[in-house]
Simulated assay, not measured.
Amino acid sequence: METLTIEPKRPAKPRRRPPTKRNRAIRHNLTAYGFLCAALFCFAMFAWWPIIRQVILSFQENNLVDEPKWVGLDNFQAVVEDPAFGQAWRNTITFTLLALLCGYVIPFAVAIVLNELRHARGYLRFVVYLPVMLPPIVSVLLFRWFYDPGPGLFNQVLDSVGLPTLSWLDSTDTALISLVIVSTWMNLGSGVLIYLAALQNIPGELYEAAELDGAGIFKRIWNVTIPQTRLILLLMLMLQLVATMQVFIEPYMLTGGGPENATVTVAFLMYQYAFVYGGNYGAGSALGLMLMIVLLAVAAVQLRLTRDEKR
């Protein structure tokens, strides 16, 4: 006789509570939070901490070997009393003004020309942007050969047209201008592309209306192009000021600060304090802090102007 076995009933699985709206948002954005934390960590380690470290070093006598000693404002006093201090600031300001005259106006003019072209536009954009793709050291070494007083390209061109040759990097009259030419050529492409992007967002109806009113090309640029791109122009002005006032590679590789300190800039003098003058990191940091304060003031003025333009 068969016996019936009754299997015990399995307990019903408890139903999972649906995740709350907050939990769903956290799970959905977990990957984004991970990338954000990684970016913040890298930014803190390689941007914020060096700034904090520089501020601390500027008030210390520190060669990164012996025990640091707090000296208050002595580093700032020593830097200001250095005869090269005033020369470095004059050279930096002169370089900045010349670089703005060339590196701010020329890319805008080139962008306007490229924007008006109908043929070979992509090829010409590539040619203009090519110097940006080269490492800065390669561009500087290339111009070192251009400036060579013997077989250099520039002097050969001058000699071929019957003009006297120049001592580009060895004369106090032309050394700083030579550095401006290198800097303008190296950074031309990035400025042109940014201006091109701004120009292509200008409605074509504005130019058509200006042409119907009889406006020539210069009036169209003054009354349409510049007003429509004023925010980009202000932004590029700030970026140019910040970049040119920190110029270092050009004087370091081409002139070494010479001749007769004609190309010593603030950033180059910082390098000399830290790595040439017996490891005086405190003085170098003090000079760097002064430069940072000046750049912060420039950025604050630019932000104020931009905010006024947006109203």
Results as ranks from 00 to 15, higher is better:
147 Y>Q: 03
308 D>S: 10
49 W>D: 06
61 E>P: 06
184 T>Y: 02
259 P>Y: 03
21 K>T: 10
277 Y>A: 01
97 L>S: 05
158 L>Y: 05
298 V>T: 10
240 Q>D: 09
23 N>S: 13
273 Y>H: 00
242 V>L: 09
157 V>K: 03
60 Q>Y: 12
262 A>H: 04
155 N>H: 06
266 V>R: 00
119 H>D: 02
44 A>P: 02
203 P>G: 09
135 P>D: 06
250 E>Q: 07
250 E>N: 00
47 A>S: 06
280 N>F: 03
56 I>W: 10
98 L>E: 04
170 D>V: 01
35 F>C: 04
292 M>V: 08
69 K>Y: 11
76 F>P: 00
287 L>T: 07
172 T>K: 01
217 I>W: 11
43 F>C: 01
262 A>R: 04
258 G>E: 04
71 V>D: 04
95 F>H: 05
73 L>G: 01
87 Q>A: 08
100 L>P: 13
44 A>W: 08
263 T>L: 02
119 H>G: 02
98 L>T: 02
138 V>T: 08
206 L>T: 09
255 T>D: 08
250 E>M: 01
165 T>H: 09
155 N>E: 11
244 T>D: 13
241 L>Q: 07
58 S>I: 06
274 A>D: 03
196 L>Y: 13
244 T>V: 10
231 L>V: 14
249 I>D: 15
109 A>V: 15
284 G>P: 07
129 Y>M: 12
100 L>G: 11
188 L>H: 09
311 R>W: 14
239 L>K: 07
40 L>M: 15
295 L>W: 03
78 A>F: 03
223 N>P: 10
241 L>A: 12
149 P>Y: 01
52 I>K: 12
66 D>W: 08
278 G>I: 01
245 M>H: 05
54 Q>S: 14
130 L>T: 12
116 E>R: 15
3 T>I: 14
131 P>Q: 06
247 V>E: 06
273 Y>N: 02
182 V>K: 00
95 F>G: 02
170 D>H: 01
53 R>Q: 11
70 W>P: 07
114 L>C: 10
204 G>R: 14
242 V>D: 00
42 C>S: 11
208 E>C: 03
98 L>W: 10
236 M>P: 09
225 T>L: 13
289 L>P: 00
310 K>M: 15
216 G>Q: 07
271 Y>P: 01
104 Y>A: 05
71 V>E: 05
79 V>G: 00
124 L>W: 12
167 S>T: 01
78 A>D: 07
123 Y>M: 12
190 S>I: 15
279 G>V: 01
222 W>S: 11
156 Q>W: 15
302 Q>L: 11
256 G>A: 03
259 P>I: 04
2 E>M: 03
223 N>E: 12
238 M>K: 10
105 V>H: 05
52 I>A: 15
54 Q>M: 12
93 I>S: 05
219 K>S: 12
209 A>T: 13
261 N>F: 14
275 F>K: 02
113 V>H: 14
236 M>V: 14
192 V>G: 06
298 V>L: 11
60 Q>I: 13
114 L>S: 10
252 Y>G: 02
201 N>R: 14
180 V>Y: 05
116 E>H: 15
218 F>M: 12
39 A>D: 03
254 L>K: 03
257 G>T: 03
275 F>P: 02
173 D>G: 05
89 W>A: 11
296 L>N: 07
167 S>W: 08
67 E>M: 07
49 W>Y: 15
